[in-house]
Write a protein that binds this DNA or RNA. Structure first.
Lengths: 235, 235
DNA sequence: GGTAGTTTAAAATGGATGTTTAATTGTTGT
DNA sequence: ACAACAATTAAACATCCATTTTAAACTACC
C-alpha cells in the first residue's frame, strides 16, 4: 500500500478527487483496468498490463490513484454505477404484459451478460468477487443483481398468482437467473462441453429465447392451480 | 517452472510416485494446499502459506511435487477423485424411466453440490477455476462435468424425441445444469438476495424437486411437437 | 513567455515469491 | 559402527512486480 504521505504526488490540486474528464488518461486507466481485472482478477492483474492497454506510462496509476488497490476500488465503484443506464434499465421499466416484459428482461440481461467485448466486464468482475469476495461485493450485488431479481419476482409472482416473496416465486426467479448467468459463470466449461457454440448476435438471441420458453413452460402451467396449493411443499 | 533435471531431487526412489502414506507430510501438504488454493486461488496462493499451515518447511513442496503447478494439479486430481465415487455414479447408471432418472440425477447432483459439510473446499476450487482457468481445468471438466452433461443430454433427448447432440437438447441440458450449479457458484449472491434461505437437508431436497418440476414442465410440453419443428429456430 | 498541471521515460528500490542448494537429521540394511 | 539413502531444514538465489524517484517534455491557461 502507498504510504499516506505519498498519496498526493506533486501539485496541490489533488488529481485523485478531480472528476473525470471525458477522454482523460484517468478514464482510459479505469477502462483498461476494468478489462484486466475482469480477465485476471485482482491479484493476477498487473499494473503494467493495465497501463499497456491504456497506452500510458506505468507511473500514472500511482499518480492518479495512489496504488493498485485504490484503482481497483475505484473500478468497482464505477462498475456499480455504470450499468445504471442501459438496456437493462429500459427492460426493468417495461410496461408490457407480464409474459412480454419477462421475455424483454431475459433478453436484455442475457445480451448484457454475453457481450464480452463491450463494457460487459462488469459481470466478469462479479465472478471474481464470487471467488474472492471483497468488502465491495455487497454493494455490487445490491446494485447489479437486486433490481433484476426483484423485478423477476414481481413478474413471476403475477404470472403464478403468488406474492413476490413466496418461496415458489423466489425459486422460479432463481431458476431463471441461473440460466442467464450460467453462460457467463461457466462459459469456459460450456465452451469445452460444447465447442461448436459461439455466441454470435444471432445465437445470443436464440439462447435467450430458449431460456424464456423453457421458463414460461412452467410459469404458464402453474398459473392457475396456486390457490389450491396442490403441491407437496410444507412452508 | 521447475527444470526437468531438478524434478527428482536426491535419491532414486522418486517420492512423487510413492502412494501417500496415511500421515506423511506429503498428505499434510495436499490437505493444506487444498484449503489455501480454495481460499486464494492458484495465483494468489503462496507455497509459504501452504507450508505454514502444514507446519513443514518451504522446500518440501518442491521436494515432493517438483513445483507449485504440479502440487496444484495433484490437489485437483484428488478433488476430482472425490467426485468419482459417490451418489452421482449411482444416479448416472439408473435404469429408471427417463423422467425418474432425470429427477434422480438432479437430486444426486444437487445433494453432492450443496452438502458443504463433506467436500468443503472442493467447489471453491472450482469457482476459482471458473474465474481464472488453469491448464488443469480441462481434465476437471472431462472427469466431473462431461459424464453428467452427456447423461442429461441422453435423458432430455429421449424425452424430447430429439438426438442427443441437437441444439435444443443441449440448450435444455444447460438450463438444467445451470439451475443446479447456481446454488453453489452464486451462493454468496443468493444468500444476500434471500437471507432467509438456509440449505438444510429438507430445503435441499425441496429445491432439487423444484428444479426437476421447473424443467420437466418444458420437457413434457415439448415432447410431442418436435418433428413438426413448429418453433422459429433456424439451425 | 511563464507557470503550474500533466505526461513520459527510465532507473532504482524494496518486498514477496518460487525455486535451488548445501548441510543436517533420521532411518535402514549390512 | 558404518554406509547409503530418504526426509528435512535453513539459508540463499533469482525473478517478478508494485512502488518511488528523477528528470525531461508537453499542454494548457494567464
Amino acid at each position: 500500500m502507498a504510504s499516506s504521505t505519498a498519496r498526493t504526488p506533486r501539485g496541490t490540486s489533488d488529481p485523485v478527487r478531480n472528476p473525470a474528464l471525458p477522454d482523460g488518461t484517468r478514464n482510459k486507466l479505469l477502462d483498461s483496468a476494468g478489462q484486466v481485472f475482469a480477465d485476471f482478477g485482482y491479484h493476477a492483474a498487473t499494473v503494467r498490463e493495465i497501463c499497456a492497454r491504456a497506452g500510458v506510462n506505468v507511473a500514472l496509476v500511482n499518480y492518479h490513484f495512489g496504488d493498485k488497490l485504490e484503482l481497483y476500488t475505484e473500478v468497482l465503484r464505477h462498475s456499480i454505477g455504470a450499468h445504471r443506464d442501459g438496456i437493462i434499465q429500459q427492460a426493468l421499466r417495461s410496461a408490457a404484459p407480464p409474459e412480454e416484459a419477462f421475455r424483454e428482461l431475459i433478453h436484455a440481461m442475457f445480451q448484457r451478460v454475453c457481450r464480452a467485448d463491450r463494457p460487459g466486464w462488469h459481470f466478469r468482475l462479479m465472478v471474481h468477487e464470487l471467488a474472492q469476495p471483497t468488502p465491495a461485493m455487497a454493494a455490487v450485488i445490491d446494485d447489479t443483481m437486486r433490481p433484476i431479481y426483484e423485478r423477476f419476482c414481481e413478474l413471476i409472482g403475477v404470472m403464478l398468482g403468488l406474492p413476490v416473496d413466496h418461496d415458489k416465486t423466489r425459486l422460479c426467479a432463481h431458476s431463471v437467473i441461473a440460466q442467464v448467468v450460467h453462460y457467463v459463470h461457466s462459459r469456459h466449461v460450456i465452451s469445452r462441453l460444447w465447442p461448436e457454440l459461439d455466441l454470435t448476435a444471432e445465437r445470443i438471441s436464440e439462447i435467450s429465447t430458449h431460456i424464456a420458453d423453457f421458463s414460461l413452460a412452467y410459469l404458464r402451467g402453474n398459473s392457475r392451480k396456486n390457490n389450491t396449493s396442490r403441491n407437496t411443499r410444507k412452508t
